[in-house]
């Protein structure tokens, strides 16, 4: 595909085309090598692989620390995303539909977890909540991930709400619907694309998180990315390549779901603005 890009581009834009191809190489090629080394039959992480086998996939799937970590990561990501939406949507409603002073300031406050480095937040939660208040690490992780995902919930659903006409809700109320009924039957359907986008973004962000989660790991509850980092540091075998390939495959599934439901580019277009 980058050949297509270079062919169409080089004819008219030789410099830009070359830079673009180089960019794609840096973004994509290392990932392809991970996949290639995962199928090795040998026991070292090398390229070209020594023969082909599925041996390391078997080992990765049977390696209980990874299995437990996948379950923990899924559990945390689902709960944190759900909680962030449950808390974030009312906030969005209050900011966009309510009569409150200082709306910009409020929105800024809810976006602030995006600005402070996650590693710094992780350190703060570790020191203040886990050590200071002796909260267990699951509770701390859930609090931290939820706060981290609130900006996504508030901003992405806010973008949907800004497009929705408040007159429709008023019409429903005028026709006798209760506030709750007007919300469920009129506002919620209009929020659907925003909810799906925020949900997908939140889930992926939480599931992949390293910097915030790193200091909050214990033997009882570990998430997958830090568990993989630890493993790489200790042993240099192709099992992590196999585990990475499985994560990649799962991510492709998420991407296809994202593309089919709201469209890929839209999901990421919303958060930077």
């Amino acid at each position: 595909m980058s050949a297509v890009l270079s062919r169409t581009a080089k004819l008219r834009h030789p410099v830009a085309g070359t830079l673009a191809v180089l960019g794609y190489v840096v973004m994509i090629v290392p990932i392809l090598f991970v996949v290639a080394t995962a199928f090795t039959a040998g026991s070292t992480l090398r390229f070209p692989p020594d023969g082909l086998s599925l041996r390391w996939f078997g080992e990765a799937v049977a390696y209980s620390p990874f299995l437990e970590a996948v379950v923990s990561s899924l559990e945390l990501a689902v709960l944190a995303t759900g909680l962030a939406l449950l808390l974030g949507v009312p906030v969005t409603l209050a900011i966009h539909r309510g009569r409150l002073p200082g709306k910009d300031l409020l929105e800024g406050l809810f976006l602030s977890p995006l600005v402070v480095p996650e590693l710094v937040v992780g350190l703060a939660l570790y020191q203040q909540l886990m050590i200071g208040l002796r909260l267990d690490n699951f509770t701390t992780l859930l609090l931290g991930h939820t706060a981290l995902l609130l900006p996504y919930a508030v901003r992405v659903t806010g973008a949907s709400l800004a497009l929705a006409d408040p007159a429709l809700e008023e019409a429903a109320r005028g026709l006798g619907a209760s506030p709750l009924r007007a919300f469920v039957t009129v506002t919620l359907p209009m929020l659907r694309p925003g909810l799906i986008s925020a949900g997908l973004l939140g889930f992926v962000t939480s599931f992949n998180n390293v910097p915030l989660s790193l200091l909050l790991q214990t033997r009882d509850f570990r998430t997958l990315p830090p568990a993989m980092l630890d493993y790489v540091q200790q042993s240099y075998d192709p099992m992590v390549a196999a585990a990475s390939t499985l994560v990649l495959a799962a991510t492709v599934v998420v991407a296809v779901v994202a593309e089919r439901t709201v469209g890929f580019a839209k999901i990421f277009g919303g958060i930077n603005r």
Binding site: L5, V34, L45, R46, F47, F207, N208, M228, V232, T251
Partner: peptide, 29 residues
């Protein structure tokens, strides 16, 4: 191509960075 450029944003940083160990490592590409 746009989807291909955005896709890595969904993929774990650990997986993406791990690729460089395969490329740059002493037995690497």
């Amino acid at each position: 191509l746009l989807a291909l450029a955005i896709f890595p944003l969904l993929l774990s940083n650990v997986v993406r960075t791990f690729g460089w160990l395969v490329v740059l490592g002493s037995n690497g590409v």
